[in-house]
Amino acid sequence: MFEARNAEFAYATAAPVIRGVTLAAGRGQLSALIGPNGCGKSTLIRLFAGLLTPARGEIRFDGARLDTIPRREAAKRIAYVPQATALAFPFTVLEVVLTGRSPYTARFRFEDAHDRERAMEALETVDAGHLAARRVTELSGGERQMVAVARALAQEPQCLLLDEPSAALDLKHRAALMRTLAALRDAQGLTALVVTHDLHLIDPLFDHVFALRGGLLAAEGRPEEVLTDAVLADVYEDPHVRTRRVEGRTLIWSN
């Protein structure tokens, strides 16, 4: 579905952040992108979102080079949720989610009843339908995050890219969001890539884990293959990482 081939990227004059990453994820695969702070996770996901263009190598989507797909066309297929940011203007939640329909709306046209239905459905999917008429500036960080995910779902994408979507969420909503993603994968064959530090939520919901370190792919594989003492100690350069499989899931902590 999406694929990086020897992708490299550097911001302006700084040292390269992504230093030759090759990876591929199949259709309907729910993948986690993990790694220590500053390892290039957000940059890599921005490359997949088409917001950045690799300096070398290429990013492919569905077999085609991403930079050859027209932007609005790409926006119908790939949705991206950036790290939590505050909005400057008091838009209503529905207005924000409706922007997810803009790739389908011609210039000088407004969203129609069908678009509103899709937007409300997306809000219901993340259990935020009751927020529709609220102003985003009045919401908590976690609620805003759910609204951002709903906006992405309203795009009806084939592929969803999420940059630390659970950072502002409480315990219950973190797990709920990951379960929602797994359910969308099962029901609609949604492909998703999630940057996350919630390692304990990965197994058993996710299909695959990519681990970055210093701009390079350090490890990848099924959750039970990557989420081990040895691999995580190497990825996070922390010899104190411990994992234990309990009741079909992997618990992770650092001593």
Partner: peptide
Amino acid sequence: HLLAMGEETAGALGV
């Protein structure tokens, strides 16, 4: 309208 929501959001929506 999309830029007012954020630069990255606008970019991801095809702007």
